[in-house]
């Protein structure tokens, strides 16, 4: 791990010696340490099975949902140990967007945006509700497209629109950071471009951590990049530097397409 960023000033999130194993002989993430910089897009790259999604899901403790997953190390959000927080509060502070668009099929577009409030049993005044819906949908540039069909089911939208709706749903709580797990892998190129544009705009207000298997996507939109291989964090640095002059041989091989 030569020359990779050892220290980031004032990180939103700090990962310290994190290891995750699905069972004892099968570690998925091994001893990863990194800080995530505020209001930047950080990409996690690597071949499939390298542990990048596992790392991402450790941050909002999604692994807690399943038994027998062994987690060691610390993750600090704004200096606070995440294991000391309730998963409820943690997940409200960290939004998540998934590989496949997954709006709630039984809820309208409007209800999908404020689903976080609904699920957390928070009752809003109608005016507050409408304000949050409009603001969140404007944030993801979806407002003009759906403002006349807010009562329709979210599943009627196109794949790209659905994914932006899911991002709006994650934003509605005004989280500290957003985790995206290969958010464009199920989208066509046009929809992918829209989501990428959106992410570069969103970093003004949010810290974004993006898992991608697509290195050109990382090059296009991220400020910082991590390269993971076989569960280890091989290299972490400014995206520009890493793509121009990777330090580790494995990073170079990956970036030049020797393996994927």
């Amino acid at each position: 791990m030569s020359d990779l960023i050892k220290h980031i000033d004032d990180p939103v999130l700090e990962i310290r010696n994190l290891s995750v194993a699905y069972n004892k002989d099968k570690p998925a993430v091994t001893d990863v340490s990194a800080g995530i910089k505020k209001n930047k897009v950080t990409a996690i790259m690597g071949p499939s099975g390298c542990g990048k999604s596992t790392l991402l899901r450790a941050i909002n403790r999604m692994h807690d949902l399943y038994p027998n997953i062994d987690i060691n190390g610390d993750i600090l959000l704004n200096g606070e140990e995440t294991t000391n927080m309730s998963t409820i509060m943690l997940r409200r502070k960290i939004g998540m967007v998934f590989q496949r668009p997954n709006p709630f099929p039984t809820m309208s577009i409007h209800d999908n945006v404020i689903a976080g409030y609904k699920l957390n049993g928070i009752r809003l005044k109608k005016s507050d509700r409408n304000e949050i819906v409009e603001k969140s949908l404007r944030d993801v540039a979806l407002w003009d497209e759906v403002k006349d069909s807010l009562t329709k089911k979210g599943t009627f939208l196109s794949g790209g629109q659905q994914q932006r709706l899911c991002i709006a749903r994650a934003l509605a709580f005004r989280p500290d950071m957003i985790l995206l797990d290969e958010p464009t892998s199920a989208l066509d190129p046009v929809a992918t471009k829209k989501v990428e544009e959106l992410l570069t705009q969103l970093k003004e207000h949010y810290t974004i951590l993006l898992v991608t298997h697509n290195m050109s996507q990382a090059a296009r939109i991220s400020d910082y990049s991590m390269f993971m291989y076989l569960g280890e964090l091989i290299e972490y640095g400014k995206t520009k530097d890493m793509f121009i002059k990777p330090i580790d041989k494995r990073t170079e091989e990956y970036l030049t397409g020797k393996f994927s």
Partner: peptide
């Protein structure tokens, strides 16, 4: 804005 306390929800 009515916000049920965390403990209440967990209980």
């Amino acid at each position: 804005m009515e916000n049920p306390t965390l403990n209440k929800r967990i209980v």
